[in-house]
C-alpha cells in the first residue's frame, strides 16, 4: 500500500498529464466530420511516431561495443522515422485533395 501511494506521489506530475491529455484528446476531435476520419487517423498515426525520440535516446545511450543494443536501436530509429515522415507525407497527400474548395460547407 505504501509503495503504491509513494509511486503516485512521486509521479503525480505524469499522472496529471495523462489524465488531462486523455480529456484533451477526446475533446479536440469530438466534432470531426466523417469526411475527415481517414486523414485524421493518418495524422494521429504520424503523431504517435514521436516514439522515435525514445529510439534516438536508446541509440544515443548505447555503449559503442554493445552491438545488440546498437542494431536493435538502429532498427527502431529507422522504423520510427518511417512512421513519422511517411505518416505526415501521406496525410498531406490526402488533404491536398481538399484544398481547392474555397468554402467547404461542412456542418456535421
Amino acid at each position: 500500500m505504501d509503495n503504491i501511494l509513494n509511486f503516485i506521489s512521486t509521479n503525480q506530475q505524469i499522472i496529471y498529464i495523462v489524465i488531462l491529455m486523455i480529456f484533451v484528446g477526446i475533446e479536440v476531435i469530438g466534432h470531426v466530420p466523417s469526411v475527415l476520419h481517414t486523414p485524421l487517423m493518418s495524422g494521429a498515426n504520424a503523431i504517435h511516431g514521436v516514439v522515435v525520440i525514445g529510439a534516438i535516446i536508446v541509440m544515443g545511450k548505447a555503449n559503442t561495443d554493445n552491438y545488440l543494443a546498437l542494431i536493435l536501436g538502429f532498427l527502431a530509429v529507422v522504423l520510427g522515422t518511417i512512421n513519422v515522415v511517411g505518416g505526415f507525407v501521406v496525410t498531406d497527400r490526402m488533404l491536398e485533395m481538399f484544398k481547392k474548395k474555397p468554402q467547404p460547407p461542412k456542418a456535421t
Partner: peptide
C-alpha cells in the same frame, strides 16, 4: 509511445502518445 514517455520521463512522448491513444479510441 506513451509507455516510452514514462520510461524516459519524456513529456513530449507522453503527451503525444496519450493524445493519440485517446483521440484514436474516440475516432
Amino acid at each position: 509511445a506513451a509507455c516510452g514517455g514514462f520510461l524516459y520521463d519524456n513529456k513530449v512522448m507522453l503527451t503525444g502518445g496519450i493524445l493519440v491513444g485517446a483521440a484514436g479510441t474516440l475516432l
